[in-house]
């Protein structure tokens, strides 16, 4: 009985060591991406935009550092802001930290995945893969459905 307990402890220690030796992936399994969607584009000259909710279900803060997709050469997280005079502007949002148990919404009129230099048009009914990169080196890839240009949310 005592011996068995020791083995279990040893196993736990071993698992912890293995876990620590692979910090590159620590954290990203705690990322849940929900309600991803995007709008169709007209051709490839105009930038596209994609939206989603990124949830951190883990116990450590996560920092979203970048995006990658075969669809666009320059995917970046941008933020639209509207000032008190009603003037809208848009600029790169930089890194985004998500506290444990919190989520960040990429939604119209705020943060969004801006897809610059499209490699092909975004066609309604299609999907594309978008990889989110975190500061710990972890990556999460999601399949983003392409809705109509006039879509207002993940439901269309």
């Amino acid at each position: 009985m005592v011996k068995k307990l020791r083995y279990t402890n040893a196993l736990a220690v071993l698992l912890t060591v293995v876990g620590l030796s692979a910090p590159a992936l620590a954290g990203s399994e705690d990322v849940v991406v929900e309600n991803a969607w995007s709008r169709a584009s007209i051709g490839v000259n105009r930038p596209g935009a994609a939206y989603m909710t990124v949830r951190n279900t883990g116990e450590d803060a996560l920092t979203l550092t970048g995006l990658a997709t075969p669809l666009a050469m320059m995917p970046e997280i941008h933020e639209s802001k509207t000032n008190s005079d009603g003037v809208s502007s848009m600029s790169p949002a930089g890194e985004i930290t998500i506290e444990p148990g919190q989520s960040v919404a990429l939604e119209p009129g705020g943060l969004h995945a801006m897809l610059m230099k499209l490699q092909e048009p975004m066609t309604e009914g299609g999907t594309f893969l978008l990889t989110l990169t975190f500061s710990d080196g972890g990556k999460v890839t999601v399949e983003v459905p392409i809705l109509g240009i006039a879509a207002r949310g993940p439901e269309g």
């Binding site: 709008r39 007209i42 000259n45 105009r46 930038p47 596209g48 935009a49 941008h78 639209s80 509207t82 809208s88 848009m90 119209p108 009129g109 969004h112 801006m114 897809l115 240009i149 006039a150 879509a151 207002r152």
Partner: peptide
């Protein structure tokens, strides 16, 4: 403007 990826299509769809 039509090269606007976020605010303009959002407003037009609203």
């Amino acid at each position: 403007f039509t090269y606007c990826p976020d605010v303009c299509p959002t407003t037009l769809s609203h």
